[in-house]
Write a protein that binds this DNA or RNA. Structure first.
Ligand code: SF4
Ligand code: SF4
Lengths: 158, 158
DNA sequence: TCGAAACAGCACTATTCTAGTGCCGATTAA
DNA sequence: TTAATCGGCACTAGAATAGTGCTGTTTCGA
């Protein structure tokens, strides 16, 4: 039902937490690293899953990691330069709305029998683009601003 | 990965097909019923699953059914008065982006440990609303118009 | 009257995905 | 040296998805 995975939620929680820490820092100050353990101590989430999410975020280029004792993670970019699209993409792979909807790799060899005559493939691909545009437009900064409207859809019109 | 289920896709295929049939009919003509078997003969989808999807659409009030031989389904409303939101909702239940995101029933008894301190609950709930607004804005008619942009996001601005 | 075509409901299996855990190696500051 | 930390692989248990089977009910038409 269009649901994000738990891993994604855990990753988002960690990122929002980091963004809030960054917002509380004096401007220009370098971001301190924070360990997976430390984040897990703050939020009641399975520490191991959280570590898994952070790993994926590192691989996606959203976090930078430092190994060894006193190691940890930090945002590789300011929070207002990280889009939710990037985050979700790093945590659960390339976006798809249908089984055939390769964002980059369209027509992924005969997976779906219907494809040659499918009347919904093209419209749904466009819809997916629309959804993704939404995700790309939401920054981590906007997510961390609790009271703000992350989508900008309503605050812009109302 | 934010994917629709196969059942939903099959249901959408059937609906779009019916909408196309309706578009080919002279205005004012009553919609003919079409059986699940007939639709299954046109598209290479598992007939039984298709029937399952049609059943759900009937329960959701989107299709009207006629039983007995020569029976079948037809749209209960014109295609431009059926939103994709309704369709998806009928086929895969109420929308949710997170595990806690009851559209109607918020705070569904202690399912998530994080909830009291969750920093992403509120922003994601708003994002889900944004996505759902998108779905509500797309009509079956728009989906059946192959060349058109179903979301209206791009044709409106460009 | 009878039978076939169609919807309606229930239940079932197999496969895939998700959630979560375990383990061990590599790195690094103390 | 040691302990804390990231990094990679693999594994289990549970849930969701995909798909099928069967039986009942309605209705048209022969
Ligand atoms: S071709 Fe059509 S039925 Fe097949 S996966 Fe794509 S959208 Fe779904
Ligand atoms: S409370 Fe937060 S972590 Fe829990 S399900 Fe809702 S969004 Fe996810």
């Amino acid at each position: 039902m269009l649901r994000l995975t738990k891993r994604t939620e855990y990753g988002l929680i960690a990122l929002v937490h980091m963004a809030e820490l960054a917002a509380a820092r004096p401007p220009g100050a370098e971001a301190e690293v924070i360990s997976a353990r430390a984040i897990g101590d703050i939020f009641p989430v399975p520490k191991r899953m959280l570590a898994e999410a952070l790993k994926h975020l590192q691989q996606g280029g959203i976090l930078e990691s430092t190994r060894g004792v006193r190691g940890g993670y930090r945002l590789s970019r300011p929070a207002d330069q990280v889009s939710l699209g990037e985050i979700v993409s790093a945590l659960e792979g390339p976006p798809a709305l249908t089984s055939c909807a390769g964002m980059g790799a369209a027509t992924s060899e005969g997976s779906c029998e219907v494809e040659p005559v499918c009347p919904i493939r093209s419209p749904l691909a466009r819809l997916r683009t629309g959804i993704w545009t939404l995700f790309e437009g939401v920054t981590l900064q906007a997510l961390a601003d609790r009271s703000a409207d992350p989508t900008g859809l309503f605050s812009a019109t109302g």
